[in-house]
């Protein structure tokens, strides 16, 4: 698949991702609704992208698509943020989103200390920014989303379910 933008031809950067899409930031709320359709309660999402790519912005849009009316802020210093959803959402049993950021972790082999086991269950969707900084084995991501900066208002977003 190639996309043409202003006379340049851009090949998708993650051809191996099951799904990719060029997203104009104006269309982000719409895209978030589409993405949410591919998520399930209990999912643990690895959210990958450089600083400024829009990871937190995407989580904000996803939370909104799931009916969360509160503030979604950067978890860089708090490490874990939790957003309680109203019971009236499309996912049966989904009660909350946990939004993590491992940006401040380095060479960490073991994230047991965050007590994630008690937090991650079928009532939660968990998003982790900078998942590269921790061991996959310790939290078993089920979905990966990658965001690539294309221009100030465009991102390429790829996503797939991990088996």
């Amino acid at each position: 698949m190639t996309i043409t933008i202003t006379n340049k031809t851009i090949r998708p950067i993650y051809p191996t991702m099951q799904k990719t899409k060029l997203v104009n930031l104006e269309k982000l709320p719409l895209f978030a609704r589409e993405l949410v359709g591919d998520l399930r309660a209990g999912d643990r999402v690895a959210l990958i992208g450089e600083m400024g790519a829009g990871k937190t912005t995407l989580v904000k849009a996803i939370a909104k698509a799931l009916g969360y009316a509160g503030m979604v802020k950067s978890p860089t210093f708090t490490i874990l943020n939790e957003y309680k959803l109203s019971t009236d959402n499309d996912f049966s049993g989904l009660k909350k989103i946990i939004h993590a950021d491992f940006y401040r972790f380095e060479n960490l082999k073991d994230i047991q200390a965050l007590d994630l086991e008690s937090e991650l269950n079928n009532e939660t969707i968990f998003f982790a920014e900078w998942p590269e900084k921790v061991n996959k084995v310790d939290w078993n991501p089920t979905v990966v989303i990658k965001i690539i900066w294309i221009s100030p208002t465009v991102r390429e977003i790829g996503w797939e379910r991990l088996d």
Partner: peptide, 12 residues
Amino acid sequence: SQYGGVVPEVAA
């Protein structure tokens, strides 16, 4: 500093 930030397990 050598880790670049908070490492909670180490922190605890």
